[in-house]
Write a protein that binds this DNA or RNA. Structure first.
Lengths: 147, 147
DNA sequence: AGGAACTATAATAAATATTATTACAGTTAA
DNA sequence: TTAACTGTAATAATATTTATTATAGTTCCT
């Protein structure tokens, strides 16, 4: 998988630790060791989905719009990377049953697998990631074991 | 994900439909619309794990060593693609808590996600894929719903 | 009003990953 | 002993990802 998902999570986590003021693409890009244009591109997607608010011009930047606990990783995955799980396949080959139908079989199996992945990711929020990152006690394990 | 997993599954499915005779890398490659050297490289991995047997020389090729129902997709995933699920991350940046620990956080979450994916894939065998591909009635749905 | 500090976005270039091809050594059957 | 194979390394071509450059627009400040 490419790093769009990681960068989206990174940016949101960064913003979650700075809820009171805007962060520039430059600051986030520096934190992620990546080019600011890329951050702006990815945050543009998150803005369109209402996760953050953008302000242009001097003193502008990005700020969270939702509570970190309410931003679940499955939502971010959907926005940045949906379909990334399904392996590439060579183009169908109608000369052979296997070649003709393999892509469809793989796509079908991994479509289900991706649904399951998304369900798994829905147990994690940006708040959880922020906790992981700042080494605070984690509440995710409980969520997963149903406690 | 690259196509190694798909090609491994493709090759094994091909072999499962031709249990009585060896198939050449040329024949499999043609079915998958891919270069024979690539098939030999991937099948080399499967041979080392005992899934198939290889014969060199004239009249040689590849033949299944295990029953199609006993080859589970999680095993193939492990061999060809383990780790492919975890998204790329920019290199850690020690200047920033988020940058310093994001890679580790992502890796940890997706390590668990990958375990879950492998467990999901363990419900599918090469026999199931062969059924999908040849449009025979599928037994997988039952396995998944626990019937 | 004008400049500095921002975002938005498109276009291009560079870097990286994937895949194909070539080459050659070794094996086996006929 | 030759044709038909696998095994594997090295190189080339292609595709994908990422960085960079460029330009236009917005906002704050003086």
């Amino acid at each position: 998988m490419n790093s769009d998902f990681s960068l989206a999570v990174h940016s949101l986590t960064f913003l979650s630790l700075q809820l009171d003021q805007m962060a520039t693409s430059h600051a986030i890009a520096e934190s992620a060791s990546v080019h600011p244009v890329r951050i702006r591109k990815i945050l543009g997607l998150l803005r369109k989905q209402g996760f953050i608010v953008t302000k242009e011009g001097c003193g502008g930047g990005f700020i969270l719009q939702k509570s970190p606990a309410d931003i679940k990783l499955n939502e971010i995955y959907k926005i940045t990377s949906e379909g990334a799980l399904v392996p590439k396949c060579p183009p169908p080959n109608s000369e052979c049953v296997v070649g003709a139908n393999m892509k469809q079989a793989i796509t079908s199996i991994f479509g289900d697998a991706e649904n399951q992945l998304e369900s798994f990711l829905s147990d994690y929020s940006i708040k959880d990631v922020a906790s992981l990152v700042t080494h605070e006690p984690i509440e995710v394990a409980e969520a997963l074991t149903g406690e």
